[in-house]
């Protein structure tokens, strides 16, 4: 029953889909097509990411990560975080479990915010599309402004949220 309860939002949406199907079959068909495609994409991308996160959790020592992304890592931390975020593929929600793991291993809040920001702004595989569709000026403004903005947001957030405060919600634990 508890498992079923966690799917309540999904079932409500499913109900919505039936409602749409009743009114307009073409739109409902398109929805089913789009949804099944993105679910397949997700089932395809997510397992290796989670396996890597699980392995990282077991093997990477806290001290090592603190050196790279801890409070005293300064400019090194910026580059390391940027590298981590920009080679990654996939939507932002994949970054959440990764961010939590980094946090658990001692990364400072500043770099976590920067990591999430960079993930949603700079991604090397996607950069090609942005460049070809919108040109170099647009792309450069987007990247430079985004990174500077999220770096300062990170500094601000670090003052507000402590590491421990964010770690109360550990998704690797049973809920």
């Amino acid at each position: 029953m508890t498992t079923l309860k966690r799917y309540w939002f999904f079932f409500i949406l499913l109900l919505g889909l039936f409602l749409v199907a009743w009114m307009n079959q073409a739109i409902a068909m398109k929805t089913v097509q789009l949804t099944s495609k993105s679910i397949l994409d997700m089932l395809f991308l997510l397992p290796p990411v989670f396996v890597l996160v699980g392995l990282l959790d077991q093997w990477v020592k806290k001290e090592t990560l603190i050196r790279f992304m801890g409070g005293k890592s300064s400019i090194y931390g910026v580059f390391f975080t940027l590298l981590l975020a920009s080679v990654a593929a996939g939507p932002l929600y994949i970054a959440f479990p990764i961010a939590v793991l980094l946090l658990k291993k001692g990364a400072s809040v500043r770099y976590i915010v920067f990591f999430l920001g960079a993930w949603s702004t700079v991604k090397l595989p996607v950069l090609v599309y942005e460049f070809t569709s919108f040109g170099s000026k647009f792309t450069l403004i987007h990247i430079c402004f985004g990174l500077v903005f999220y770096y300062f947001t990170g500094i601000l957030f670090e003052k507000i949220y402590g590491q421990q405060k964010l770690l109360k919600h550990d998704i690797t634990k049973e809920t």
């Binding site: 966690r6 997700m42 397992p47 989670f50 929600y93 690797t172 634990k173």
Partner: peptide
């Protein structure tokens, strides 16, 4: 490690399915 990966996956699955359906609906409308 694999066990914790599986738990992570199981924890996000209900949300993800709902998100996908939501986006599918939004994009087709």
């Amino acid at each position: 490690a694999l066990w914790s990966s599986w738990k992570m996956f199981r924890n996000v699955l209900p949300d993800l399915l709902a998100i996908m359906l939501f986006v599918g609906l939004a994009l087709s409308l």
